[in-house]
Design a protein around this nucleic acid. Structure first.
Lengths: 196, 196
DNA sequence: CGCATAATGTCAGTGACTGGCACAACGTGA
DNA sequence: TCACGTTGTGCCAGTCACTGACATTATGCG
């Protein structure tokens, strides 16, 4: 019954997350996921290229949203201001959907193979953000540098938030960019010519 | 002939790199690698946990070297100055060993699965660098932030170097940290409170 | 030379993933 | 209403990464 296609896909995602939580990623077979979703194992691999990808379906949307946030950010601001703007917007969605996406984080954090895949997705994200910055007129080299370092600060903030949920993610984010500015203020590459 | 163990290991690494270059990573089976190395397929998986890991054997040494460079950096300098110092030292080794490690880069760049693994190794590296900074007395939060963003700048520099080998990696590195400082100088989180 | 030990060979098995082919459930137009 | 192309699916065989268990061989040592 090829009713909708999207239905089976969604059932597979739910089933996979459930099983990854119950038995762990490595102890879950694709056949088990398919069985719980009520479809054939082959159907699973028709919807997702592999066992990991089933947890990263929303990644493209997140990337698109972030790119849009960067492009739509108010004009006349520096790259970091633009990124902070976009990240804060993204962080708001993150905080709102926390109860929904927290089990997903748990599974990913507990599974090396899934963390690898997550890092790969983040690399795509950084590239997309850099491209968005270029679209705003930021120079080639600066766009890449800003995207990479800005994302690093964002990742630091989210990690700090997980470790200390007492403060809001937004607060952690602001502090991260403040701290980054303070750190950079003390770096003088010229003087470092006389290295150790 | 279990002669040395390390010999077979080295032959496996050479054979793997050769085959990955000739046929591509996905078109190379573990059995083929083992055959070219003159050992059994099972022996391959005794030396390396999987097909990807065979290319990342030196990663632990690189990490150790970087940590040592951070710990041994001259006292009385800010985190970014320390990192720049350590990265420049690491970059020198990178430039010297370029002809040897370039084929490895080619294979990794051409294979998504290998890039994923590389990103995972980099994450370990960042954690180790952050720990080294903490050992120098840098505060918990700042150490992580500095390690992440500093590494991001380093990665940007290496990429810029690959795209433009006319300038030295060292020059790219210095420019990256200069640019990062300039970028940060224009970021004022307080004003960003009034977001888009 | 006998013996413990470490490295390897051999074999069977699980599970991720793929290609090919047949079949069923739609939508569409005649 | 019926042929028909499209799409999603089931089924099957096959490759290959990786693993556990056990037998075998080389190596160093007394």
């Amino acid at each position: 019954m090829p009713r909708s296609g999207a239905e089976a896909r969604h059932r597979l995602q739910r089933a996979a997350l459930e099983l990854y939580l119950e038995r762990g990623f490595d102890q879950t077979t694709a056949a088990e996921i398919a069985a719980r979703a009520g479809v054939n194992e082959r159907t699973f691999f028709r919807h997702f290229p592999d066992k990991r990808e089933v947890l990263f379906d929303g990644e493209a949307d997140l990337r698109a949203a972030l790119v849009r946030a960067v492009v739509d950010a108010p004009a006349g601001r520096g790259p970091f201001e633009v990124l902070l703007c976009a990240f804060r917007k993204s962080a708001r969605n993150l905080e709102d959907n926390r109860p929904f996406s927290e089990p997903r984080w748990k599974v990913i954090a507990a599974t090396p193979a899934l963390r690898e895949r997550e890092l790969a997705k983040h690399a795509l994200l950084v590239d997309a953000v850099a491209e968005a910055l270029r679209q705003r007129g930021v120079g080639d080299g600066l766009a890449d540098l800003a995207a990479r370092t800005g994302w690093a600060a964002y990742q630091h903030a989210t990690q700090a938030w997980v470790d200390d949920p007492a403060q809001s993610l937004d607060a952690h984010l602001l502090r991260a960019f403040e701290d980054l500015r303070a750190l950079s203020a003390t770096a003088f590459p010229e003087r470092a010519q006389a290295e150790s």
